[in-house]
């Protein structure tokens, strides 16, 4: 007993011109008869791409948090700040709401995103049938909060642009911010590569045909 889906009915939609057509049989590449675009019923190589980007993000997550993101030079001396030391500074200086926000946006979110995407990809790979609706909702949440991860990068960029008093005070972006930006972009790409329809395919909610054909 399965819900009626496009794949179940043997239909494809062109992602460019929105033409609905009948899918060809066999392992062949479908082409839109109207605009000639390549048509996939699911994102091609979705899981592989997601995994590749996830692993890259995870690798860069370490230097992004270890290396300083910002070097503040002032008459009080030079200071190198990592993301975590910035959070610690905000916390000790009393602005703990800001500390919580930065910690949430810059440290927890990328990490949660990595873990959540890894969980989703694993569950699809293991053809899990458990609570597909909840997993789809998790995916939506990831998409939504992912954009907040760039907060720290933006803060550094704004400071670098604003605080430039030469000898008195000077803020420079350090290499850490590059790795951090990479992590954020890679996780965004990873979540984009992930096709949530696979959750439902794997759960067997979609009928008969091989849902994971590309």
């Amino acid at each position: 007993m399965s819900a009626p889906t496009a794949v179940g009915r043997g239909l494809l939609a062109c992602s460019v011109c929105e033409l609905v057509m009948r899918a060809p049989s066999g392992a062949t590449q479908a082409i839109c008869p109207r605009c000639g675009a390549r048509i996939h019923s699911r994102k091609p190589h979705s899981l592989a791409r997601t995994w590749a980007l996830l692993i890259s993000a995870a690798v860069l997550y370490l230097p992004a948090n270890i290396e300083p993101v910002m070097i503040t030079t002032s008459i009080f001396g030079a200071q190198r700040d990592t993301i975590l030391s910035g959070v610690a500074y905000l916390w000790t200086s009393g602005s703990w709401p800001l500390a919580v926000l930065v910690f949430f946006a810059s440290i927890s979110v990328p990490l949660l995103k990595l873990l959540a995407l890894a969980f989703l990809a694993t569950s699809v790979q293991r053809r899990s049938t458990r609570r597909p609706l909840a997993r789809t909702r998790l995916y939506r949440i990831l998409e939504f909060i992912g954009r907040w991860s760039m907060l720290d990068v933006f803060v550094v960029m704004v400071l670098v642009a604003l605080v430039n008093l030469q000898a008195l005070a000077n803020v420079q972006a350090a290499r850490g911010v590059l790795w951090f930006g990479c992590v954020v972009v890679l996780t965004m790409l990873a979540s984009m590569s992930f096709d949530p329809r696979l959750i439902w395919d794997a759960a067997g909610e979609n009928d008969g045909r091989d849902a994971r054909r590309t």
Partner: peptide, 12 residues
């Protein structure tokens, strides 16, 4: 479905 156009096919 029968009235819908058939997708063209190329070698994968």
């Amino acid at each position: 479905p029968g009235e819908l156009p058939q997708a063209r096919v190329v070698e994968k």
